[in-house]
Design a protein around this nucleic acid. Structure first.
Lengths: 252, 252
DNA sequence: TGACTATTATGACGATTCGTCAATTTACTC
DNA sequence: GAGTAAATTGACGAATCGTCATAATAGTCA
């Protein structure tokens, strides 16, 4: 009958604490997994090895990730969270809307080069073998994050419409444009290494390719100012400085 | 001392026969593997299952593929060979150069939808876990085929230059353009399913997206005639008819 | 404090799958 | 038809996955 506020608050506090600690450990496990991936490659990442590297037992690890593939998906979720941070910074770039669109592409490119392992996780996580064995909750997490990222892109396009930098003629929706930007960025960044490895282009920097691709698309769309009327090369470098100086301290 | 032409020729004939039979069996194994993938998913493809489905033993299968991953890469090689056939047909489309470029994109799109499983193999084969465990010879095969495919794209761009449909200003090389086309096509086709599954666009056909993406890029490049001056929608449908009627009988 | 309960962690273990290899069969030569 | 080279087989060892009975820990209540 008596009120029990202390008990409740303590319980709440403890369970919060529990959750927080569990979260922290999961983060640590992801960090270790990433490290193993870098050192031993994807073929070298085994649950036993992760167990050995960590301070907990295998059972506990399986308490976090329902399968090895779920671990990969978790790494991709981590990737997307970092991308989100970069995108937020990119959105704060000043100037006209197309500069901000460029900033988003730069953020994507930056992530793909500074965290190549995580970027590859993103690719692997798109693979059916991984999707099939990942937990529903984690797949939902990934989906939610991707939607957020695409939301940022849509935001910039809406800005462009608002300032009359583009006009959507011919049944071309915002979603469609967003998707095509995404596809372009994904393709240009994901295929760079394979293409380079097969000696397709020598000494052609990924940066230049990505920038050229974006300009091609945005010019085709008629997003003003066109690349003929504006120096997007130096704009790109300005963005690079703005984003890179904040990147290093990322890690929590 | 005596000449032995018959022996030599018989030996040659036999070894040729051997190689041919082996090739045939490999093709059969690939077909079975593809079937298993379709029915059981990537997680359901095991070497034992493939062994059970085939008429040969596991050892013989490992005589063809050095690992399970090598099998995936082999499937991707098969994919590329089929793409090659489609590309050849696409190149024979009449009209101006941009129509032929569109035909190549259509061929790529067509393959991604008519053979979704093989297309996913292509994606999986780009994954480090698969590359790391595939044989060098098969990776080389894949690379060679990809180069051939890109060669077709470059050919069309050279045609465009020859007929003055585009001009390469600003240090934009043929390789660069080819790469960006490839990236766009890859991204737009590979991301369609995931995007649709997360409900990003409803009722928006993959075809329309791909076409819109290509037009955006080629317009941005100034590849004449621009989409404002030519009906690429109906051109696309014409190409569809031309390529699709020949597709069904593919299989050797 | 100490007995009791709920939650979490452990790592030995069974199950699955991979990849190998000694023994055997088949194909070919003389 | 004896002898040799090449290919096939499938039982087996090795590696990895994922589970679960047991143990430890944290939390609750008298």
């Amino acid at each position: 009958m008596k009120a029990q506020p202390p008990a409740v608050s303590i319980a709440a506090h403890n369970s919060d604490n529990r959750a927080r600690l569990k979260q922290q450990r999961e983060q640590l496990l992801l960090q270790l997994a990433q490290q193993i991936l870098q050192q031993e490659g994807f073929a070298g990442l085994t649950m036993d090895r992760l167990t050995a590297a960590s301070e907990v037992s295998k059972g506990t690890i399986y308490n976090h990730f329902c399968s090895k593939e779920d671990l990969i998906t978790a790494l991709s979720v981590d990737s997307l969270q970092r991308q989100l941070l970069l995108f937020q910074q990119a959105l704060s770039v000043s100037g006209h809307s197309r500069e901000r669109a460029l900033a988003l592409h730069y953020a994507y490119f930056l992530f793909s080069t500074t965290e190549p392992t995580l970027f590859l996780c993103l690719l692997s996580a798109a693979t059916p073998a991984v999707v099939e064995k990942s937990s529903a909750s984690r797949l939902a997490q990934r989906q939610a994050l991707e939607q957020q990222l695409l939301g940022f892109c849509q935001q910039v396009i809406r800005q462009a419409l608002a300032e009359n930098a583009i006009s959507l003629q011919g049944g071309c929706s915002i979603e469609e444009l967003t998707y095509l930007q995404w596809a372009q960025a994904f393709g240009a960044n994901a295929l760079y290494r394979p293409a380079q490895q097969m000696g397709f282009f020598q000494g052609l920097a990924q940066q230049q390719l990505v920038l050229a691709g974006v300009n091609l698309m945005l010019d085709g769309l008629g997003w003003r100012p066109l690349s003929a009327d504006f120096d997007y090369q130096s704009c790109w470098q300005r963005i690079a400085l703005a984003l890179q100086q904040q990147a290093p301290q990322a890690q929590s």
